[in-house]
Amino acid sequence: MKRKLFLGMIIGLVLLIAGCAQAPATTDDKDTGSETDVVTTASIVDTEEAFIKAISKDGTWIIATIDDLEISSDLVLDGDFVNGKKDDGGNDIVQRKIGLYTQDEDRNVTARFTLTAPKLTINSPKASIEHGTFVGDVYVNANDFQLKDQKIEGNLYFTTLEAQSTFMMDATSSVTGVQELKQ
């Protein structure tokens, strides 16, 4: 019974996200001059290979794990993505998310997962890691990085002052190691 419910929730999540997403598109951001690579739906992953592909510049805007993952190589979250939504000015909203959890139809977190790797480098702007545990060190090169209900068992390094000053972490998030600028 639990297995059918879990499978149903995963299928529902995929359908919800797929229904809300736009077709792949490239857009220009007039304010920054940067180019957004692609708009995509979620990638639900449970293997090392699938996770590494999903976080690449050719991956998806949201990467959702459905199990603990232990990866022996360094990871890089790369690429500029939009989430299929528009802001009040009609501009595409840039976002990238690693979701280390599953949720029910009411968006309640139903399970949390651990991602383990020696190092995770964040190159995608407006990226977040949410509702799980990352074991390893995180290096942030991009602005507006966020932790949401997330635990980092390791250090959090910022490679620029702007990346450090735009970082946000909610009250339920924690970092067991240092949080510092490391250029």
Rank of each mutant, 00 (worst) to 15 (best):
R96Y: 08
D78A: 06
G84D: 10
G12H: 06
S43E: 03
T26Y: 00
K57I: 02
E35I: 13
V135A: 12
D28V: 13
I66T: 12
G136F: 07
R3G: 09
A117Y: 05
V178I: 14
E35S: 13
D137Q: 04
F167V: 12
G136D: 10
S165D: 13
I93E: 01
K86V: 03
I17C: 03
D46S: 15
K119C: 01
A21L: 05
L156I: 05
P118S: 00
I129M: 13
D137I: 02
V178H: 10
M9A: 15
Y157W: 14
V138W: 09
S124P: 04
M1R: 03
A25I: 15
K97W: 10
N108L: 01
L16W: 11
S43C: 02
L15M: 10
Q183Y: 06
N108R: 11
K30F: 06
V109K: 02
S165E: 13
N155C: 08
Q146V: 07
G177D: 06
N141L: 08
I63S: 09
V38S: 12
T160P: 09
T110M: 04
V135M: 11
Q103P: 07
E130N: 11
F158L: 11
P24H: 04
Y101A: 06
N123V: 00
D137R: 01
L7R: 11
L161P: 11
F6P: 01
F158K: 12
L5F: 09
E105S: 14
T116R: 12
L5G: 01
G132M: 04
A18C: 14
L100K: 05
D80W: 07
Y139P: 07
T110K: 11
D74L: 03
I11P: 00
D88Y: 15
V45I: 15
V94E: 14
T27H: 07
Q164T: 06
S174K: 06
R112H: 08
P125Q: 10
F134L: 09
A21H: 04
L100F: 08
M1A: 06
E48C: 04
E130V: 05
I63C: 13
D144R: 11
S43F: 02
S173P: 12
R3K: 11
I93Q: 03
L5S: 10
E49W: 05
I11C: 12
T121K: 01
V138Y: 07
S124K: 04
A23K: 11
N155G: 10
E48D: 15
K119M: 04
G154A: 08
A142K: 05
L161M: 14
Q146N: 15
A64S: 11
H131P: 05
N123C: 03
E130G: 02
G132N: 10
V38T: 10
V14G: 01
D28R: 05
L100R: 09
M168R: 12
Q179R: 11
F81L: 03
D31Y: 12
G33Q: 04
G84H: 12
